[in-house]
Amino acid sequence: MNQFKPRKRELSVGEVAARCGVAVSTLHFYEAKGLIASRRNAGNQRRYARDVLRRVAIIKVAQRTGVPLAEIREALQALPAWRSPGAADWQRLSVTWRARLDARIRRLERLRDQLDGCIGCGCLSMDACPLRNPGDVLGEEGPGARLLEP
């Protein structure tokens, strides 16, 4: 009797890219960043376990909500490597990300609400500008805009 237990069918990088709707280079990037893993077959080609499909889906959702890749990697490393992430796993991940997303939404709403009073002024040093120069503290340094985005 044959004692060899065949592996579940693994996926090539092209198959994963097609199934996930991402470029092959994106998968290479995710792998280089430690977000997903593959093994090499005898021909030195990447082969992915099927659970990578769900992991890439999680990465894409997290990225769309603004979660930095370092945080995504940290969260994925906390999941068991031997199985696909499930609903309970997603619940744990999304709780933290949801709180950050809510805070980001609040910051963006405040910015949006303050922006209306600044559009068109262009100087960013008027005492009426609540975004960049509250109280016109930069006006004491001389004329012109003093703050630039990095």
Rank of each mutant, 00 (worst) to 15 (best):
Y30V: 07
R54E: 07
C121E: 08
A42P: 04
V61S: 03
P150F: 10
L108D: 01
V95Y: 06
D116H: 06
S25D: 14
A128Q: 11
A87S: 13
L131E: 08
R107W: 00
A49F: 13
L108E: 06
D89S: 04
N41K: 04
P80F: 03
V22A: 02
L101D: 01
G142V: 13
L148M: 05
G86V: 11
D89E: 10
Q91H: 10
R50E: 15
A23W: 12
P85R: 03
L93N: 02
K5P: 00
L76I: 04
R83A: 07
T65I: 14
L131C: 08
L27A: 01
A145H: 02
A49L: 12
E31M: 07
G142Y: 05
A145P: 08
L93F: 07
E140V: 15
G66N: 11
L115V: 08
P134L: 02
C123P: 06
R132G: 15
R92G: 06
L111T: 10
V61Q: 05
A70P: 00
R107I: 00
R19P: 03
G86K: 01
A18P: 01
T96I: 15
R106Q: 15
Q114H: 10
R132N: 15
R92V: 14
A62E: 03
A32S: 15
S12H: 06
K8G: 12
A88V: 14
Q45V: 13
A81H: 13
L69V: 14
A87F: 13
R54Q: 11
G139V: 02
S125N: 08
S12C: 07
V56K: 00
D51T: 11
V137E: 08
V24F: 05
G135A: 02
P80R: 02
R39D: 06
R132E: 15
S84K: 09
P134Q: 06
G120D: 08
L115F: 11
L27R: 00
A17M: 09
E141P: 01
L131A: 11
W90M: 12
E149Q: 10
P143T: 03
D51Q: 15
A70N: 05
C20M: 06
R64K: 15
G139I: 04
N2H: 13
L108Y: 06
G122Q: 03
L138I: 06
S38G: 05
H28W: 09
R83S: 05
Q45E: 11
G122L: 03
V22F: 05
P134W: 08
P68R: 04
R47Y: 01
P68S: 07
N133V: 00
G120S: 01
A78E: 15
S125T: 13
S94W: 14
N133W: 00
K60Q: 12
R50G: 12
W90C: 09
A81C: 03
A81N: 06
D89P: 10
G120N: 05
G34N: 07
K60A: 10
R40K: 14
K5W: 01
N41P: 01
G142H: 03
A99Y: 04
A23V: 13
P130F: 07
R98D: 14
C118P: 02
E74S: 09
A145N: 07
A78P: 04
R100P: 00
A75D: 00
V56S: 02
N41E: 12
R98I: 09
V52D: 04
L35R: 04
Y30P: 04
E31D: 13
V52N: 07
V24D: 05
S84L: 07
A62T: 01
R47Q: 12
S38Y: 08
L53H: 12
E31P: 02
V16P: 00
Y30K: 04
Q77D: 10
A32Y: 05
